[in-house]
């Protein structure tokens, strides 16, 4: 399993609306497939994605099994001050994968 990929501009001007991109390695097992013996492969997906900036939620997403493997998101954020973006992916098994990226706002 590789680390999640996040793309945040290093710098921005106060009041800028910036583009954020994230990509994480995950099979997103839908729970609708069967194995060779005909048994249903249990569902195991990332069901929640959250992006915070300095502790406040900017954007989040509830994911269903129809999201493709290796979930990709692109979204926007308005930045008024320097700080840190925190990205969190919650797996069906309860585990949370986190990643952080700082931005300098002038």
């Amino acid at each position: 399993m590789s680390k999640p990929r996040v793309k945040v501009p290093k710098k921005a001007a106060a009041g800028d609306v910036i583009t954020l991109k994230t990509l994480i390695s995950h099979t997103m097992e839908s729970g609708q497939r069967k194995d060779k013996d005909g048994a249903v492969i249990p569902r195991k997906i990332i069901n929640k994605f959250v992006c915070e900036f300095n502790g406040n939620i900017v954007f989040s997403c509830d994911l269903d099994p129809a999201i493709a493997a290796n979930p990709y998101f692109e979204f926007k954020a308005k930045v008024n001050e320097s700080g840190t973006f925190k990205f969190m992916w919650t797996d069906d098994d309860g585990s949370v994968i986190e990643s952080e990226k700082a931005i300098e706002v002038a």
Binding site: V17, I18, S30, Q32, F53, N56, I57, V58, F59, S60, C61, D62, L63, D64, P65, A66, I67, A68, P71, Y72, F73, E74, F75, K76, A77, K78
Partner: peptide, 27 residues
Amino acid sequence: GNPNPAVATFHFSPASGEALASTRMRL
């Protein structure tokens, strides 16, 4: 036309600046 119609729900906030979101889905 999927086995279950739900795909995703995006939640925005004023801090989003712009209500834009992209992802990749299964059909």
